[in-house]
Design a binder for these strands. Structure first.
Lengths: 352, 352
DNA sequence: TTGTATGCGTTATCAA
DNA sequence: TTGATAACGCATACAA
C-alpha cells in the first residue's frame, strides 16, 4: 500500500468527479448538487481525506491566514504588560473574521534561526512597540506586497499607523507635576533600545532613542522639564520600576520630589521602592504613571496616570490589516489618552 | 509593464542560469561558484526579487515553520499568568532553531472565523492547559500527520506529554495544611471548563471537570480532604481569587481556616480578600498557592506553595516538537514540583 | 558545479 | 451544476 496521504485528486477520482468539483465541495464557494456532495464526502471518508492541505491552499490562494506580530523583547516581557495583552487580544479578535491568526515574531531574534518577517508565510505584519531600527526590514516585507501596520511608531510614508498622543499626554502629566510646585523631577523611561541597560540617560542615549513611544513620551516630559534627569528601566515592569526607584531613593544625593514614569507598571515599582525607603506617597514624593491599567493590590493608592485606549488600538490595528488585505487604503488612526488624577501626586512639601 | 512580482525563474533567466541554480543561491544547500552567485544576486537586485516566497517554499518542503499553540480562553487571560508566559517563552526559544514560530490558536473560538488546527498551515501543535474536549480535534490533526504535544493534559495513547506531578504536589500542600490541624478547608480551583462560571463545585461539576490540570490538582486535594468544599474561580488571576475570597470570607457561614488554591495568583487574591475582611494571615486563615512564581508587592508575605519548573516544561515541549518533526519518537516527560513553605500557613488557632 | 525535469496539492477561470 | 486546464513559486533527484 502507498503510505502517501490522499489528496483531493484521489478523492475526486474515487468519487468519480473532477478535482475541481471535489475542491468546491470542501470550499463551498460554488453550489454543488446534493448527490455529488454526498459522493465526494463518502469518498473522502473512505480514503481518510481530512480536507485541503493548508499549505497548498495558501500557495494557490496567495493567502496563509497568518498575521505576523512583531514586538521587541521576549514574549515574557512583552506579555507581562497588561496594555500589550489587551492590545493583542483585540488585534486577534479583529483579524479572526477573515480567518487569520497571530504569529509571534520577535524583533532582533533572541535565538538564532527563528522565523523572520521575510521567511514566515505571513499575509500582513503588525509592528508593536518596535524600535525604529526595524524600519529597514520593512522595505523587504513591503516590497513583497505584504501590508504593514505600525502601532506606536512610524513605519514611513504610506504605512498606516495606530498612534497615541504620547507626547501631549505625557506633557499633561509633567504639567500637572509642575503645577504642584515640583522642580526636582525625574523621568523614568522604558528601555530606549531593545536590550539596553538600565541607568541614567545621557544626552547621547536620549538622541539615540530608537523606540518611538519612549522618545515621544520623553519629549512630552522635556516640553515641561527640559533639563530634568531621566532614568531608563530595563523593561516595563514593576520589578524594573522598583529597581529604578531604589536607585533614585537609595542614594545620598538629593532625592526627587516627583517621578514621572512612562508606564503604570514602572510607576508602581517606583512607588514600592519609595515605601521601602520610608518615603510617603504623595507627601514625600509624587508619582505619575501611564496607561491607566488596573494594578491589583495597589490600594489604597490610585495612580495619577494617563488612561489609554488599549483595546481600541488593537482593534483598530486589526481592522486596518483587514482593510489592507481587501485592497483598501485605510488611514492612520490617532488615539488620545485621558488624564486621571489619583492620589499619588500632591503639592511639593514646603520643607523638602 | 507587467505588475507581476518576479519569481526565482525570472531571476534565473535574467542571470542566465537554471532556476535550480538560482534557488540554490538563496537556500545555500549546495555549493555555488562565486561567479554565478554574484550573477544571480545581481539579477535579483535588478528585478527587485526579495527571496523565495515562503508560501511556495512551504508547499514544496512540506514545512511551514509554524507551530500552533492552542490554549483555552482569551490571550489576555492566558498570558496574564506568569507561568504561561514563561512556558511559552521557553517553547518559542526551543523551536526557534528549526526556524519555527508560534501561531496563537484559541480553543473554542472566541470569535467566529478564526484559524483552527485544521485550517492553519502548521507543522506541529502544542496544546497547553486545554480541556479534554479538545481531544476530538486531535484526531484530525494527527490524521494529517501533524505531530502533537500536550502540556498538562492527556492527548491519548501516543501523544507525547509534558506533565507535572499535579496530584502528588497538591496532595503535599493539603497534607501540610492537614498536619497544621486544619479541618475547615476549602479548595479554590481554576475554571474547570473553558468559560465556566465561578462558584461552588457540585459533585456533578467535579465529575465533569474537563481540564486535566484542574482535575488532577483537585484529586490531590481530595486525597487528603475527601469531603471538603471546592470553589471554582473564573480564571487564574488575582482578581478572580479575590472574588472567591470575598465569597468565602464575606458570608455569614463558618469561615474556612485554610484555603488551598490551585495557583499562586488565586492564592494572592484570596489573601487580599482575607485582608479586606480583617482576617490575619496566617493566624486566622492559612493559604497555599501553586506555581512558585514571584508576585510583586506581596511582601511581607511569602506564599506557601509548590514551585513548578515552568521554563523547563516549555523547553521540553519545544524539544519534543523538534524531535517529532525530525521523525523521532520522543517520550513523555514528567516534571516535579517542589514544596516551599512560606509564611502564609500556620497551625490552626485553638479558638477558631 | 550546473542544468533538466518533475511534482508539491490546491483552486480560479472558463467553457460546457 | 460540472469538468478541463492552468497556474501558484519553489526545491529536489538526478543527470550532465
Amino acid at each position: 500500500m502507498n503510505a502517501r496521504r490522499p489528496t483531493i485528486s484521489d478523492v475526486a477520482r474515487t468519487a468519480g468527479v473532477a478535482p475541481s468539483t471535489a475542491s468546491v465541495v470542501f470550499s463551498g464557494k460554488t453550489p454543488v448538487s446534493e448527490a455529488t456532495r454526498a459522493k465526494v464526502l463518502a469518498a473522502a471518508n473512505e480514503l481518510g481525506y481530512l480536507g485541503p492541505d493548508p499549505r497548498a491552499a495558501s500557495l494557490r490562494r496567495g493567502r496563509s491566514g497568518i498575521v505576523g506580530v512583531v514586538s521587541g523583547g521576549r514574549l515574557g516581557s512583552v506579555f507581562g504588560d497588561p496594555v500589550m495583552r489587551i492590545t493583542m487580544d483585540a488585534l486577534a479578535d479583529a483579524v479572526a473574521p477573515i480567518g487569520a491568526g497571530l504569529l509571534l515574531l520577535r524583533e532582533g531574534s533572541v535565538v538564532a534561526g527563528g522565523p523572520t518577517l521575510m521567511t514566515a508565510p505571513i499575509d500582513a505584519a503588525v509592528l508593536i512597540g518596535c524600535s525604529g531600527l526595524l524600519r529597514e526590514h520593512l522595505a523587504g516585507v513591503r516590497g513583497r506586497g505584504i501590508p504593514v501596520v505600525v502601532i506606536e511608531g512610524d513605519g514611513g510614508a504610506d504605512v498606516p499607523r495606530i498612534a497615541l498622543d504620547n507626547r501631549e499626554a505625557q506633557r499633561l502629566a509633567a504639567e500637572h507635576v509642575r503645577d504642584l510646585g515640583h522642580t526636582r523631577v525625574v523621568a523614568v523611561t522604558m528601555p530606549f533600545r531593545w536590550g539596553s541597560d538600565p541607568g541614567w540617560l545621557s544626552p547621547d542615549d536620549e538622541r539615540a532613542t530608537s523606540v518611538d513611544v519612549v522618545a515621544d513620551r520623553l519629549a512630552g516630559f522635556r516640553d515641561v522639564f527640559p533639563d530634568a534627569a531621566a532614568y531608563a528601566a530595563v523593561d516595563s515592569s514593576i520589578d524594573a520600576g522598583a529597581a529604578v526607584g531604589r536607585a533614585l531613593f537609595g542614594g545620598d544625593g538629593p532625592r526627587p520630589t516627583a517621578v514621572v514614569a512612562q508606564s503604570d507598571l514602572l510607576a508602581v515599582g517606583v512607588l514600592r521602592a519609595a515605601e521601602e525607603a520610608g518615603l510617603r506617597v504623595p507627601e514625600d514624593v509624587s508619582i505619575t504613571g501611564f496607561d491607566g491599567i488596573v494594578v491589583d493590590g495597589l490600594a489604597p493608592y490610585e495612580l495619577t496616570t494617563l488612561v489609554q485606549p488599549a483595546w481600541e488600538k488593537g482593534r483598530a490595528a486589526g481592522e486596518t490589516v483587514v482593510a489592507l488585505l481587501e485592497g483598501d487604503t485605510p488611514d492612520s488612526q490617532w488615539f488620545t489618552s485621558t488624564f486621571r488624577r489619583g492620589n499619588t501626586t500632591a503639592s511639593v512639601a514646603s520643607d523638602s
